[in-house]
């Protein structure tokens, strides 16, 4: 059985269907990417996994338990942590408070001091700025804080929605390196990205999403060489 298994889900916003009969799996320890253009349904998929949206049909299971149509705070208890698109830090709270609140769930709350050290090791910039309000951080720092807040929750699987969005290339490299490090330390990662090249390079496997459907899947390396990917996403 798969770690995370999505089986033929359909998702609507009101009357508008956005995800069509979509299935995918993530195995323990993998880094899996979901790539696709604007409006393909990537964020919708993550929001459905984390319980912000409910599928109208199909099933999502995690460690062999059915988890779809459960409230988001319940999904967090399973160890599925969603770092949403656009950082969504708590603007009027300090960096440190944002990190602490990331560890709100029961599995994480007893290990706050230890985890915060790990986050500061991964992102030393956050340590320097721990008492600064989140809203005053630069875009790159905000992304670090958002990922850090996700790590604070002790995820079994960390879902990142476009962590490279709006970052300068040099910062982007740092962020992707950090994601690789998180995975190497043993956390399963489900990565949603528009930066196809970088995300496929660091992923074990990937799915290509178009119009709410999986149109292609394979290992990161395979897909990087695929002519359709090259043309549609890499501009080659």
């Amino acid at each position: 059985m798969s770690f995370l298994k999505i089986d033929k889900i359909n998702v609507y916003y009101g009357d508008i269907q956005v995800i069509f009969n979509l299935s995918l799996t993530v195995e323990k320890g993998e880094v899996v990417s979901i790539v696709g253009g604007n409006g393909a349904g990537k964020s919708t998929l993550l929001r459905t996994i984390s319980g912000l949206l409910f599928p109208t049909s199909g099933q999502i299971s995690f460690e062999n338990q059915k988890i779809n149509s459960k409230q988001p705070e319940k999904i967090v208890d399973y160890g599925i942590i969603h770092v949403p698109e656009g950082r969504k830090l708590f603007s009027l709270m300090t960096v440190k408070e944002n990190l602490i609140i990331g560890a709100y769930n029961k599995r994480a709350e007893t290990k706050i001091a230890e985890t915060i050290d790990n986050v500061y090791q991964l992102f030393p910039r956050l340590k320097e700025r721990e008492n600064q309000l989140a809203m005053t951080l630069s875009g790159g720092e905000q992304q670090m804080a958002a990922i850090g807040r996700g790590i604070m929750a002790h995820p079994k699987i960390l879902m990142l929605d476009e962590p490279s969005l709006g970052l300068a290339p040099i910062l982007m490299k740092d962020i992707f390196a950090a994601i690789r490090k998180i995975a190497d330390l043993g956390t399963t990662v489900l990565l949603v990205e528009q930066d196809v090249k970088n995300s496929l390079s660091l992923s074990d496997r990937a799915y290509v999403l178009e119009h709410g459907q999986v149109v292609m899947e394979g290992s990161g390396k395979e897909l990087l060489k695929n002519p359709h990917i090259k043309e549609a996403y890499l501009g080659m």
Partner: peptide, 18 residues
């Protein structure tokens, strides 16, 4: 803190397990 987080952004607060 959870009350403050919810007052700032209820959806993101729920992603923290609140």
């Amino acid at each position: 803190r959870a009350v403050r987080a919810t007052s700032i952004d209820r959806e993101t607060a729920s992603l923290m397990g609140i």
